[in-house]
Design a protein around this nucleic acid. Sequence first.
DNA 1: ATAAATTTATAAAAACTATCGATAAAACTT
DNA 2: AAGTTTTATCGATAGTTTTTATAAATTTAT
Lengths: 314, 314
Amino acid sequence: MTITQLQYVLAVAEYQNFTVAAEKSFVTQPTLSMQVQKLEDELDVRIFDRSKKPISITDAGKKIVAQAKNIVNEAKRIKDIVDQEKGFIGGEFTLGIIPTVMPTLLPMFLKTFINKYPKVNLVIREQNTDSLIRNLQDGHLDAGIAATPLDIEFITERPLYYEPFVGYVPPSHRLRKEEKLSPEDLDIHDILLLEDGHCFREGVVNLCKASQNFEDHFHLQSGSFETLVNLANEGLGMTLLPYLNAVDLDERKKSNLKYFEEPPPAREISLIYHKKELKLHITNALREVIASVVRGAIRFQDVKIISPVSKNGT
Amino acid sequence: MTITQLQYVLAVAEYQNFTVAAEKSFVTQPTLSMQVQKLEDELDVRIFDRSKKPISITDAGKKIVAQAKNIVNEAKRIKDIVDQEKGFIGGEFTLGIIPTVMPTLLPMFLKTFINKYPKVNLVIREQNTDSLIRNLQDGHLDAGIAATPLDIEFITERPLYYEPFVGYVPPSHRLRKEEKLSPEDLDIHDILLLEDGHCFREGVVNLCKASQNFEDHFHLQSGSFETLVNLANEGLGMTLLPYLNAVDLDERKKSNLKYFEEPPPAREISLIYHKKELKLHITNALREVIASVVRGAIRFQDVKIISPVSKNGT
DNA sequence: ATAAATTTATAAAAACTATCGATAAAACTT
DNA sequence: AAGTTTTATCGATAGTTTTTATAAATTTAT
């Protein structure tokens, strides 16, 4: 049994087709077919059922594929271990970012990072917190950026910055006359929120919960802050924006912003990664780059951190 | 990088010597040396420092060896997966048994098992509960036999039998005149106990705790029941024995046994294994064999199970 | 300090294996 | 039923692992 054979098996399992799998593995079809056969002979079990097309995986095959994935992944990590030992900052690095952070944070640090560490092949994925955690666990992500604290056993959280919430209050809104917002003033029923799954929503819900007894139903949920702002302008209520999104608004819309009293409620944005610390060198490099660019953009000493995790265990 | 190369590296790491490692790997020394070199070249890092003898492992090497162990172990499991899928009962199976169970239980089932399943290469290791749990976690053991309940997240417990405690009370002892023992009569200060680490001791301590407020100091601790019995005969106190140890005593000593009132305090002995259920077929076969031989030796309906785990978190 | 013994590295030859291109066989499509 | 797609088989070839033989380096013993 060789690692190559396992990789071939994984390719066939993925593409459900020997010819395609061979192409993707950069070998000819007979090469791949023979190696898969050899492994099947050695284990004395069929992994794939080729009697019909498209081919299917046998029961034993499913378990073998699962284990093969495991082995091939662990084998790949040998290279990471060596890189880390050498202090080499390079190779592939996959970073997941939650949707409400992505558009504002990514442009701030991306250029700086790829210039400073040109040998890192940075792969960015936009994912909500739940899939982010799952992908960190099974090794599909090397690190993630999410609202914290999450308090998950196998994850290390390294705070990057604290981002206050800012109110977007259109002229027609009852809170328009207030100089500063206070969490007690908020009414969850006239705040426009992002759709479920975005952890920013959980944060806002928690913020309102802190001052009100709150039942779980909303006027409306949308997928982007831009939509929320436009809906607010239509008189459908107010909305809350993270600070970095708020400063990105055009001048006309900025006039509708209302800040909170000190200390403003804020979300904690952290770099999170598996406690196994597999690519710690790159992770640390990333953290320093982000921290340095954010330091110029956000400067708040005293904030009140709002948890992104819903209390009733979503 | 091949699995063979990783195995060679592991052999060198284990024997700290290329020549011996080659013999143990059933290849010649140049074969092994060259493959290790090839891997070092591919990773571009020294794994072993050969400049002095005996050779030593580099820092990077240590990490590579740890990961290689992982990979090679996971690779071995492919074969297990296939065996299990086929319902084949065979291959290596490593079983850990706690010291206070080993001498009485092992002779009862070993012959039956190896006759019934001649293709299983059973490896038995005597280990205390703590190392048993550790070895189950890192895959060095396939199953274990220990006093339960342990209530450990990743472990499945399948009770095998309930073994009552029996008092060994020498003629001079104050409890000698009693017909039956009762937990309330016991005084931890004149019970001879096994040394720390044997979970049987924890069970007895818990039994006494149930009726007394108990401070942690003992007259004496020994490593074997035989010593305890002999010490008891010297007038140093009484001791408690598991039922199967008690019935193994010679006739003269048996006269000093005193049973508990119904329901007698008892320990639960279980077959424990990782929730991953890697060799479930063999584990189940083992459980059935043990359960069938024990059924003839111990027959109690109503017992009071004493936990083997110390309450103050040892 | 030098010789002997032990251990690891190197070199060339032999055995073995993965890969390829060409082609046959099987299964599916129309 | 013919054509298309997909997988298996075959022989040739390049590449790799392994072995035997031997050299180089290191340690131990005299």
